[in-house]
Computed example of a mutant assay.
Amino acid sequence: MRWWDIEPVLELEHVLFPEDAWSAGMFWSELAHARGPRATRRYVVAEDPQTGGLTGYAGLAAAGDLADVQTIAVAPQAWGTGLGSRLLTELLSAATAFECTEVLLEVRVDNTRAQRLYERFGFEPIGFRRGYYQPGNVDALVMRLTDPASSATGPALRSEI
């Protein structure tokens, strides 16, 4: 993801997460940590090969030996195509490159589609964060993957960073 991707990312962000969408400033801040020798972030975008339009994006933050999936988003027209798996594969490859031994994430307790994706990659539930998603006071399921290198396989994702 580059700065010029922020506007289309925000459009999809507002479609998928209308009540708790990230701001442009949040994406700018994340991208500020995604370049150079001290980078601690990896953000990628996926584009439709036919139209060039944005179909998804994902981001990961690393600190020491721990990584955290910050976001994964797939446009509704790309649901069921395997794009979510490819985005997650890219993030796990980045976690491995950052030399992380564990990856954490939060997922809405009512988002069973995403939970199944994460379970296929070996993530296991480890707890809850009560009222994590606002508004609506929806709980988050916290999931952890140990040894991301063993799960970072799959088709390559064309991405820019």
Rank of each mutant, 00 (worst) to 15 (best):
G122P: 10
I126C: 05
V107D: 01
L145R: 06
R116Q: 14
R113L: 06
R108P: 00
P125R: 14
L117I: 08
D110V: 15
R113H: 07
I126V: 15
V107A: 15
Y118N: 03
G122V: 01
R120W: 01
D110Y: 01
Y132P: 08
E119S: 06
I126W: 05
Y132I: 02
V138H: 00
A114R: 12
Y133T: 12
D139T: 14
A140W: 15
R120M: 01
P125V: 04
Y118L: 02
P125K: 13
F128Q: 07
R129Q: 07
A114H: 11
N137Y: 10
V109W: 02
F123Q: 01
R116C: 04
P135H: 05
T146Q: 11
E119I: 00
G131L: 13
A114E: 03
G127N: 07
R113E: 08
N137V: 07
Y132W: 08
L104N: 09
D139F: 14
L117H: 07
A114N: 14
D139Y: 13
L105N: 07
R120A: 10
L141Y: 10
Q134M: 11
E106D: 14
G136V: 10
N137M: 09
G136E: 12
E124K: 11
R120E: 05
T146K: 09
V109D: 09
A114K: 03
V109H: 04
L141M: 15
Y118W: 05
E106C: 04
L145F: 03
L104R: 02
L104F: 15
A114F: 08
R130N: 04
G131Y: 08
V142T: 13
R129Y: 08
N111R: 05
R120G: 12
R108Q: 03
F123P: 07
Y133S: 11
F121Y: 15
G136W: 12
Q134Y: 06
L141S: 00
N137F: 09
G122C: 06
G122Y: 00
L104V: 04
V109L: 08
A140S: 05
G131P: 13
